[in-house]
Write a protein that binds this DNA or RNA. Structure first.
Lengths: 216, 216
DNA sequence: ATTTTCGCCGATAGTACTATCGCCGAACGA
DNA sequence: TCGTTCGGCGATAGTACTATCGGCGAAAAT
């Protein structure tokens, strides 16, 4: 075997990441109820007391996990959406804009599930982190929609775009879940549906010029 | 005060419902981590040991809570959707089909949040119940879409309708969350967005006749 | 080479949670 | 009216979890 000598820093980081990974695994399989320092450490293969070398308590770990998740999911999706929204007239590019986030979600099911679940959690620090992240994603998606030519002049239009962004995210997540559950094996078909849904609002917002905010 | 004498049956049912309500409240405010027999009973104002008069353990309570939720959310939304889908040519009716579920969700925030969160929970009995419920809702929505004239002849088309149903549910939930978080104060505007999204798939599925599954 | 640092460990005190038991008193049945 | 039923309560044994402490050994510093 190669040089197995790790610097102290490296070794500590490795242990820390093991703890975070174990916590994520437990959250995904057993739920919050399975979270305990003993359980996490056992799953990570280290002593229970070592937990406190890395985190002050379980809440501290959850905060770290939230930041970890933010670092993972955010940038990639963003870049993909941006790249394709710059050329929305290209059907393939538009499909990419929906496919890449979808693949990203399906590629990290635990992170993804945790993220969605956490957004509805008003208690743990995970919830707060997830909502912050969602707000950022939403804002970026709105930017992209504006870049794609959708109107955002009036406050009503701006709010409308936020709603659309939320909708697109929700749709993408719904397709990802269906795919992960095995109900929608063909990802391309998922992309189809996303594109079709989006076409609705797009034509609507482009056609329905700033005449009136909402009829009803 | 009026007659405060309750029959034994009534009193027991009342206590049981108090326990379920307390558990729901705790799940919404503190999360799964706050769930303990002592905590639930304290919040319900009864002795900890009394918990076991009504439930065998916490898992038993969660199962009961899942059924309770099913009884609450299911039928009302269903009926509203059905009533309006029967006359999809009427714009007002279509709006109703989206508004009623939305209002229902916003009217019971704890139930709603719990339901969504649970669907991503693969551990607790709540998760299983939530997914079962989601499957029923999906199937019913598909029926309504078929009744509204959307094609479902081929297996591909049927699957497509399931995806659309999932999408509609996800969109509705996303709008409900935005409203509950105060970002989208005007429910009518939420309905607008839902209708616009739906218009996309509708025209797409009606126009793109059974020629090809997914042209691209 | 020697000393210091520190990540990890085992042991453990303190605490919270689960589940059971016997008792009480009010509803119930005769 | 009188015995029975049973839902709720306090007490408690057993268990799991949290957080701390001193010690060990290898990396790091001198």
């Amino acid at each position: 075997m190669p040089d197995v000598t790790l610097s102290r820093r490296e070794a500590k980081d490795l242990t820390r990441r093991r703890l975070l990974a174990a916590a994520l695994r437990i959250l995904d399989t057993e739920g919050e109820g399975g979270l305990s320092t003993g359980n996490v450490c056992r799953s990570a293969g280290i002593a229970q007391s070592t937990f406190y070398v890395h985190f002050r308590n379980m809440q501290d770990l959850l905060e770290a996990l939230g930041e970890e998740a933010s670092r993972h999911v955010g940038p990639v999706i963003r870049e993909a959406r941006r790249r394709s929204s710059a050329a929305p007239h290209s059907a393939d590019r538009l499909r990419d804009a929906f496919r890449v986030p979808l693949e990203k979600m399906c590629g990290h099911p635990e992170f993804f599930r945790l993220n969605v679940r956490a957004r509805f959690d008003r208690a743990t620090p995970l919830g707060e982190a997830a909502r912050r992240r969602a707000a950022v994603t939403r804002a970026q998606l709105v930017e992209d929609l504006v870049a794609a030519g959708l109107p955002s002049g009036t406050p009503e239009e701006a709010l409308r775009l936020e709603m659309v962004a939320d909708g697109v995210t929700a749709l993408t997540e719904a397709m990802a879940i269906g795919h992960l559950e095995g109900r929608y094996p063909d990802l391309e078909q998922c992309v189809d549906v996303l594109v079709e849904f989006f076409a609705g609002v797009r034509t609507q917002l482009l056609g329905d010029r700033p005449a009136s905010g909402s009829g009803g």
